[in-house]
Write a protein that binds this DNA or RNA. Structure first.
Lengths: 345, 345
DNA sequence: TTGTAAGCGTTATCAA
DNA sequence: TTGATAACGCTTACAA
């Protein structure tokens, strides 16, 4: 033992009672005589006793802990999620363990395994390879999936309406007169990316537009994950170059901004840019990016609530699916304001 | 038991060995005959056995888990810290549990208590009331404090040179010709805020400037925590109003930006603004804020390393103190570029 | 109102 | 190379 911490036995001995009575003070105080209770409470204070949650969890089978797995903790999307989930967890007496996948699937596996080994009561998952979910489902592990959607996985989902979102974005660009619209999307196997590509293609099709194949490029949702595809997009000969780009997440939009700068072009004058997921803080400094903003904090809140409800009433639980509608925030980068100015002058 | 998970006994029975042999496969594979090992490994896979970390931790007294406590997870400062710490923890086989205090001291106490109850092997703490540290020291809990400094607390510290930082900021404003410089500081009892006020006063004193008392105002480090003091600063009659403001953290700078906007003034033309802690992502969109940037990710990396070294060699451990020098990044909000333009024209 | 005994799932220790 | 036994710190079930 590295920690030779005070145990319930120590407290019991000091207070002249049995361990059981101390345990009662901790869990069912009303069952203990007031004087005994006082004495024990004092001893606990005096000795600085902190119950060992491992021992308790081993016995009860519950750890009062939830796990949240996100793709990249430095992404404001993920912190908003975490902040919402944490609030609900905390309010319900749960701790929230935050796991960060970073950019590796192997890490995702290790992370989930660690959380399962530590017997967290349930899992909120925002990112991870499909296999993980299958494994967790086989175990009937309580899981809420936030963001992506998987067919055939019986569990709770909290998602945004990606099809609608990209539709709004595309339509917005069309309204501004753009015809050559590119999509800088997430990974091909990501269910959200798939939805977004569908919405993009359909909206264009409704306007009888067929985008060039080079206009649909694939990046990752991590910082810098859109650098190369952005450069490729901007490197197209001016006759083929898109006049507008839809970025599939906030970090991808950042890549576009940097690439446009490197190409010595300007947003929105030369290239219009719109994207998914807001940078709230950045927009206070300078409200620049036109985005479809998702109520991400709400995702966290609702997902945690769903999970806790399930834990409280396992027999009543039924898999549910919460879909939220994202909201268009028009700022500078799409060129709308610019155009209005041009028109009015 | 809520989780009727597979146990080591189940694996042992299926493989026709004792639990002890399974345990050996898990922890000292070399001590087990290759064929037995193969068979057991297969059974583990087949049954989907995940060792119970609670049982193991109870026995070994180690959880292979570190706790990181931050003030506000939505602050990029904190995520940078977490990202650095997590990397090191992970690389050394530790999990990192992220705790978020939010804006309540009571929550900080509960959080630390939860982590101690769960017997995390050590704690990285970026924010919290002083009492907590005293309690942890009494327990000889391995703790690294990141950011604030406390006298008389025997533990590891990782900090930035706040005195130097504010000195650079103040000097920079003086060089730009400002004489009426305000300090929007953190809470009075925060050790970093104290250092910053000292550096500010001394630098001004060296230039024979005594700031008006109304120019030193107190906010909090949370989002919106500088709204009212900023408004107060800007509400001063123009003759008394500062021409430059130093914000003691990034969220305080945000408050200033909003207050200046509300007052229908401009940064930097009417009010110059500089601050502590960068918004890296925001600066890609628009490099606006002039700041003293701290190598925060490095704080996380170094702090985690310090903690893990201590855990690995408890007897060799000596409290150490790592101080990093922050770096001035000149952008728009201080007016330097503006001035240069004015001069050259 | 309080206490005793057993056991949660592991691993340390000693024995075979 | 493998196994039996005890113990980690706590709570459930039962008894006093």
């Amino acid at each position: 033992m590295r920690n030779n911490a005070v145990t319930i036995q120590d407290v019991a001995a000091h207070a002249g009672v049995s361990a059981m009575t101390v345990s009662r003070v901790l869990n069912n105080p009303s069952q203990v005589a007031p004087e005994t209770r006082k004495r024990i409470e004092q001893t606990i204070e005096e000795l600085g006793y902190f119950p060992n949650a491992l021992a308790r969890g081993l016995l009860t089978g519950r750890t009062e802990t939830l796990g949240l797995i996100v793709g990249d903790i430095t992404n404001p999307y993920c912190t908003a999620l975490a902040s919402g989930a944490e609030e609900v967890a905390h309010r319900n007496g749960y701790s929230l363990v935050l796991g960060n996948i970073g950019n590796s699937a192997e890490k995702a596996n290790r992370l989930v395994e660690t959380l399962v080994r530590n017997r967290v009561d349930g899992l909120l998952i925002n990112a991870g390879p499909r296999d993980i979910f299958k494994m967790l489902m086989k175990r009937k592990y309580p899981v809420v999936i936030i963001g992506p959607e998987f067919k055939g996985i019986q569990t709770d989902f909290v998602t945004g309406d990606n099809f609608y979102g990209v539709q709004v974005l595309t339509q917005h660009l069309l309204n501004l007169g753009h015809q050559r619209i590119a999509l800088l999307n997430g990974p091909k196997d990501d269910s959200e990316a798939i939805q977004r590509e569908r919405g993009y293609l359909q909206t264009l099709a409704e306007h009888d537009i067929t985008p060039e194949p080079e206009w649909i490029v694939e990046g990752t949702y991590w910082r810098g994950g859109g650098d190369q595809p952005s450069a490729r997009l901007l490197g197209l000969p001016p006759s083929h170059r898109p006049t507008a780009i839809i970025a599939s997440n906030n970090f991808l939009a950042l890549s576009v901004i940097e690439a446009v700068r490197d190409a010595r072009l300007r947003i929105p004058e030369d290239i219009a840019l719109v994207g998914f997921d807001d940078f709230e803080l950045a927009s206070i400094i300078y409200p620049f990016l036109t985005v479809i903003a998702q109520p991400v904090r709400t995702y966290g809140v609702q997902a945690a609530q769903l999970l806790i409800d399930r834990l409280n009433n396992p027999e009543k639980w039924q898999p549910s699916r919460l879909v939220f509608t994202p909201e268009l925030i028009v700022r500078i980068s799409c060129g709308a304001k610019l155009q209005r100015t041009v028109i009015s002058s």
